Computed example of a mutant assay.
Amino acid sequence: MLTGKQKRFLRSKAHNLDPIFQVGKGGVNENMIKQMNEALEVRELIKISILQNCEDDRDTVAGALIEGTKAELVQIIGKMVVLYKESKEHKEIRLPI
């Protein structure tokens, strides 16, 4: 579980990131979750864009992504979701205590 200070730190890191995944009409599926897990292992922090044609609302999409990837929710702002998951082999981000 992330503290408020850690979330602020991660939000500042995510500010300059471009979204590397898009959730569209098909919603969240197993293949997408698998790819996100691989990206989280390498990057630790990812930004996901929810497209206009997505049938689910942003909270439902974020919940499905968190459940599937076992990542921590950093932020939902507009149609963007930011997730963090500590990497086992490529740890780069040092969270404040």
Rank of each mutant, 00 (worst) to 15 (best):
1 M>L: 06
3 T>L: 03
3 T>N: 02
3 T>S: 15
3 T>P: 02
4 G>H: 14
4 G>L: 14
4 G>Y: 14
6 Q>G: 01
6 Q>V: 01
7 K>G: 02
7 K>T: 04
8 R>P: 00
8 R>D: 13
9 F>D: 08
10 L>C: 15
10 L>I: 14
10 L>A: 13
10 L>H: 13
11 R>A: 06
12 S>P: 04
13 K>N: 15
13 K>S: 12
13 K>M: 15
13 K>P: 08
13 K>R: 15
14 A>C: 12
14 A>G: 15
15 H>I: 08
16 N>V: 10
17 L>I: 12
20 I>L: 11
21 F>K: 12
21 F>P: 10
21 F>G: 12
22 Q>L: 12
23 V>N: 12
23 V>W: 09
23 V>I: 15
23 V>C: 08
24 G>D: 14
24 G>F: 11
24 G>K: 13
24 G>Y: 08
26 G>C: 05
26 G>Y: 11
27 G>K: 08
28 V>Q: 02
28 V>L: 03
30 E>C: 01
30 E>A: 09
30 E>Q: 06
31 N>S: 11
32 M>N: 09
32 M>Y: 10
35 Q>D: 10
35 Q>E: 14
36 M>H: 08
36 M>Q: 08
39 A>P: 01
39 A>E: 07
39 A>I: 02
39 A>V: 01
40 L>F: 05
40 L>G: 04
41 E>N: 07
41 E>S: 08
43 R>G: 00
43 R>L: 12
44 E>A: 09
44 E>G: 11
45 L>W: 05
45 L>F: 05
46 I>S: 09
47 K>D: 10
47 K>W: 08
49 S>V: 04
50 I>P: 04
50 I>S: 05
51 L>W: 04
51 L>M: 07
51 L>K: 08
52 Q>P: 14
52 Q>N: 13
52 Q>D: 15
53 N>G: 04
53 N>K: 09
53 N>V: 06
54 C>W: 07
54 C>E: 09
56 D>F: 01
56 D>M: 00
58 R>L: 06
58 R>I: 15
59 D>I: 07
60 T>P: 00
60 T>L: 01
61 V>C: 00
62 A>H: 03
64 A>N: 01
65 L>V: 06
66 I>H: 07
68 G>N: 01
68 G>D: 01
68 G>W: 02
68 G>L: 00
69 T>F: 12
69 T>H: 12
69 T>M: 08
69 T>D: 11
70 K>I: 08
70 K>C: 09
72 E>L: 00
72 E>I: 00
72 E>G: 00
73 L>D: 00
73 L>S: 00
76 I>K: 08
77 I>P: 02
77 I>M: 12
78 G>S: 11
79 K>Y: 07
79 K>P: 06
80 M>D: 15
83 L>H: 06
83 L>M: 06
83 L>Q: 05
85 K>V: 09
86 E>N: 03
86 E>G: 03
86 E>I: 04
88 K>R: 13
88 K>M: 10
89 E>S: 15
90 H>C: 06
90 H>A: 07
90 H>I: 04
90 H>S: 09
91 K>F: 02
91 K>L: 04
91 K>W: 01
92 E>L: 11
92 E>G: 15
95 L>C: 04
95 L>P: 03
96 P>Q: 03
97 I>H: 13
97 I>R: 13
